[in-house]
């Protein structure tokens, strides 16, 4: 069974570094905001590495956990997840690098939760980041090219987010999780990732509800990763037609970061989108006690899209409970 229940796993603390455009968007309060995309470094790659280092440093310092972290798990969008590898090399803490595109953070939460539930480890850090200009260069055109974009395009968010997953009781409990299956509905357009990823989100949501015998109304809010404005509509319609499920308390993290006036087309994307909204908006809202996050990832590379291959996608779901 792809769903796992956890009894003893909590999220203790999180730390966010947000990019310049993100800090002027809908959520304005972050732990740290960047003034510019270089962040005092010479290249954007170095800037993103610095963002992750700052996140880990602050989590260790703020919680006085210098020697107590048993494992770091994380990944990012760069080829061979070099950003995370280079950031974590500065800490002598065991490390697992993982990749499932924009679903990376949920994947690291699931793996960390399993280790903790089994008693193998006590504390772990889950980390992810994305940098708009690194993603542009890798997946799209040169940064200064500024090619006109389709309205379906999503804008990769800039930021780094880390969280401490622990067996110590705290306010936020990781209650259960579902590992998604790869879906491929033969979408080929890498500028329309909402359409690519919606079936994966729907599939993991239904697996989760069926495995745990829950109704969609069990959750106060369902937060998907980065489907964007058009992707949200596609998911709602797809759930209605395919599964007969009407989703009401629903939010897409991709639509919660930027203002419409910021010209980001269909919304935000990138692995950092979901944790950025989760830790800086959703968990701060006292209304939400039972939260289901569904991180969605599009599993393509520039080569596969150039060769006109269809784009597979994945999504993982994690159920969080806010105690007290």
């Amino acid at each position: 069974m792809a769903s796992i229940k956890f009894n003893n796993v909590y999220i203790k603390d999180s730390f966010t570094v947000a990019g310049p455009l993100e800090s002027e968007g809908q959520i304005r309060k972050f732990d740290l905001s960047m003034d510019d995309y270089y962040y005092g470094e010479k290249t954007f790659i170095d800037a993103e590495i610095k963002m992750q280092k700052i996140v880990i440093d602050n989590l260790l310092y703020r919680n006085k956990m210098g020697k107590k972290i048993d494992l770091i798990l994380g990944g990012d969008l760069s080829n061979q997840i070099t950003i995370t590898n280079f950031a974590v090399k500065n800490f002598s803490i065991p490390f697992l690098g993982i990749y499932s595109a924009c679903a990376t953070f949920a994947e690291s939460l699931i793996i960390a939760s399993n280790f903790i539930e089994n008693g193998t480890i006590k504390n772990a850090i889950a980390i992810t980041s994305s940098h708009n200009l690194n993603a542009e260069r890798q997946f799209r055109f040169p940064i200064e090219y500024g090619a006109p974009k389709a309205s379906t395009t999503t804008f990769t968010a800039t930021g780094a987010v880390g969280a401490i997953v622990t067996n110590e009781k705290s306010n936020v409990k990781i209650e259960s999780a579902t590992i998604g299956t790869i879906q491929d509905y033969e979408q080929k357009d890498a500028t329309h990732m909402g359409a690519v990823m919606s079936p994966a989100a729907a599939s993991v949501l239904m697996d989760h509800l069926n495995d745990l015998k829950r109704n969609i109304d069990y959750y106060d809010v369902v937060v998907t990763g980065d489907l964007g404005r058009i992707g949200m509509d596609i998911l709602k319609e797809f759930l209605k037609i395919n599964y007969g499920v009407k989703i009401k308390n629903y939010m897409d993290a991709g639509c919660e970061i930027f203002l419409k006036s910021q010209e980001v087309y269909s919304g935000s994307s990138g692995p950092v989108t979901l944790p950025l909204v989760l830790f800086n908006k959703v968990l701060n809202n006292k209304k939400y006690k039972k939260i289901l996050i569904i991180a969605t990832g599009s599993l393509h590379s520039k080569d596969t899209t150039n060769q006109k291959k269809t784009i597979p996608s994945i999504a993982h779901a994690v159920s969080l409970e806010v105690l007290s």
Partner: peptide, 12 residues
Amino acid sequence: YKKLVSRLTPKE
């Protein structure tokens, strides 16, 4: 699904 996507995608 392709039809659903093209129905919900705004035209350029």
